[in-house]
Design a protein around this nucleic acid. Structure first.
Lengths: 290, 290
DNA sequence: GGAACCGTGCAACAAATGTTTCATGGCCGA
DNA sequence: TCGGCCATGAAACATTTGTTGCACGGTTCC
């Protein structure tokens, strides 16, 4: 009965709309306008809100080629499913061959990463920064490629909070640090799939010690995010086929450091100036020439 | 019963997760990982796929403060509602002097960084990758916050070229490495204003030794870009007032690594697979569960 | 060692779901 | 004007839904 849907269900609906009975048009428009509710709420619920008969929804579905409302809704649900990376994969495939296929791939990668950045929640970062501001001490963890993110965060935070920030395992085996977590401290764990056992251990230790746990991960389902007080999400898999992308994690780390710095007020500002002055005094930097 | 949800339902779930019974944790993780299906499909369906008892879902919902699964699902549904186009609304609201003006700042920062990424030249990266592919050995340099970029590049390149990549100064004073540069080797120097003397010294040493010099910098006028065979530019100052942004540099580093990997062909692929297999064998990663 | 407790799966329950049937009312063609 | 047709709403239908009571097995605490 239900022919394979070549078009998106919403398109099918729009196309068939004009040739439908009056009431079905009404209901069809309602579905098109509220397709999210259509996938989540019940048929009777929708009927009540649309001021129509429940049966009209079943009839509508059959009128445009589905076996019933259930099947239409299933199609709508699949059409809305997130993480559909189809646009990129399709494009990457089509461009794969050619003289400079690698150039196209790099462009795609950059574009994808740029698209991923704005999805990061600024609110979540601001909240996490407040936590860091209140913490007596800040521990940072990241393994494998996430180590670079951890070290960047460590570096920037230490610019204005030198003695209160530290990477887990920096001064000896990780295990020694795990026992040092205290309830008024904050522990930041950075990781994405596949997750390293070590990072999960750190997160669990932080949780057990009662320390505030901040997870920077690619999913709320990440094991280090369990029991975390703050979870900052980034997209690691935005570029197909290559290593996972870290730009999102870097952006989060830098935003987090900047927000924490702002909360520090004049005290943080003075610390930063002191650090900069010391670096300048030891002639770390190339002197500016006219 | 159902208290007003201050946090997102997924956050509540995550926070409560560790203190839950074993089987409830299991289904909780499943819900967190498949929250879209959780809002659209039926409880029994989910239970079948998760290999758990349907009752567990009801119990999970009650355990974290909801009156039942229906209410939890309703909360998840609302949290996912697409009309929440946070980037614009959040910024528009808090743009003024509010309690959290920092949120607006973070949003701006992220947006600015996203806008900066596509300006990176894919061609320049592809050319530089070709150089790296031909190099007998690859040296990497970055100081201060650029150290994280250097280490990420080092990490990713070593995944498929273990013995030919190394950070300058990794095994002793920098000066020792400076004398080791050879004409058939490549040296990558990463830096932005203000430039550190050390990085400039490395660049000059590479130039004198006749090694191929690749500069990743914020300007063609950067001192380490003088005499460089390849200059990859990124925008460091895109966010006003804060620390310079490193997302551009990270994006370049990752694209560079990916492009070099592609040039490596099957040999590089095999190396990477070997590395991954070794990591898996030593149980570095959290084992995936069905 | 016994008792109380908790976590867990199974099965039965009432409620809600999507579907179908039926009766009604309006419309057009004869 | 009549007869057939179709759109429409209400009610009855079989399923499926989320829930709850109960029994079993393991653990903990006297």
């Amino acid at each position: 009965m239900a022919e394979p849907a070549k078009f998106s269900p919403l398109s099918e609906l729009r196309i068939a709309l004009p040739s439908l009975p009056l009431r079905l048009q009404e209901v069809g428009r309602f579905v098109a306008a509220n397709d999210y509710d259509a996938t989540t709420r019940s048929m009777r619920d929708l009927a009540a809100e649309a001021g129509a008969d429940p049966a009209a929804f079943t009839r509508l579905a059959k009128a445009i080629g589905y076996s019933g409302w259930d099947e239409l809704r299933a199609a709508l649900t699949e059409a809305r499913r997130p993480s559909q990376t189809s646009p990129f994969s399709a494009r990457a495939k089509s461009r794969r061959h050619g003289p400079n296929a690698d150039v196209a791939l790099i462009s795609d990668k950059l574009e994808a990463e740029a698209a991923g950045l704005p999805r990061i929640s600024a609110h979540a970062i601001a909240d996490a920064a407040r936590t860091l501001h209140d913490a007596k001490r800040i521990w940072i963890t990241g393994y494998r490629s996430c180590r670079s993110v951890a070290e960047l965060l460590n570096y920037e935070l230490r610019l204005f909070r030198p003695e209160q920030v530290q990477i887990v395992g920096a001064s000896g085996p990780d295990d020694l640090d795990l026992g040092a977590f205290r309830p008024d401290e904050a522990v930041i764990v950075i990781g994405f799939m596949p997750y390293t056992n070590a990072s999960v251990r750190v997160a669990q230790a932080a949780y057990r010690a009662g320390a505030t746990l901040i997870a920077i991960a690619d999913s709320v389902a990440a094991p280090m995010a369990e029991g975390a007080d703050h979870v900052l999400l980034f997209e690691a898999a935005s570029s197909p086929g290559f290593f996972p992308s870290l730009t999102g994690a870097i952006a989060i780390a830098q935003s987090l450091a900047a927000a924490t710095f702002l909360l520090g007020g004049t005290a943080a500002k003075k610390r930063l100036q002191d650090t900069e002055a010391r670096l300048a005094a030891t002639s770390t930097y190339v002197s500016e020439k006219g």
